[in-house]
Amino acid sequence: MSRQAADAELELIAKAQGGDKAAFGELVRFHREGVVNVVYRMCGNSHLAEDAAQEAFVRAWQHLPNYQPRSAFRNWLYRIATHVALDALRRERGTVEVDELSVAAEEGGPEIEVVSKERGEHVRRAVLSLPPASRAVLVLREYEGLSYREIADTLGIPIGTVMSRLNYARGRLRESLASYLEVS
């Protein structure tokens, strides 16, 4: 994020903290994709992800007066989003359906596209099979590109724990996705 964009975001945050819902709407628009992505990678269902992402923004609005610009706003949002995703998973345990692979629509299309979709589905299921604590670290690192320090701040855990959870998650994925790693 450029210096100018960061300043603009700080301005929007200050306005939102003063009760300006339009400014908060701009923040929602700007961070929607990242927050939905984090929740989606955590729970594997796009409808649940959107619902949980909206809930994350509502919680962010409620806790906005407590936000200190010392930490990045994005990381603060991701922290809330991760908790909301875990809450949603706990609440919906056993009822959440992972989005079905829509291969049928692609029948007759290029074979490689079908293979690519199948692989995407396997990857998603492998990520979802990880314990939530390790999955959160992996999602923030691999999909959102956060540094270890940022992940530690976001999840409120020590850097050593970030590293051990990430190593564990990658070890598990290297086993479950071994066939894709060999051909890549």
Binding site: A49, S116, R119, R124, Y143, L181
Partner: peptide, 9 residues
């Protein structure tokens, strides 16, 4: 491989 898996649709 992780990066190539599609985002939410």
């Amino acid at each position: 491989v992780l990066g190539a898996s599609p985002p939410a649709a």
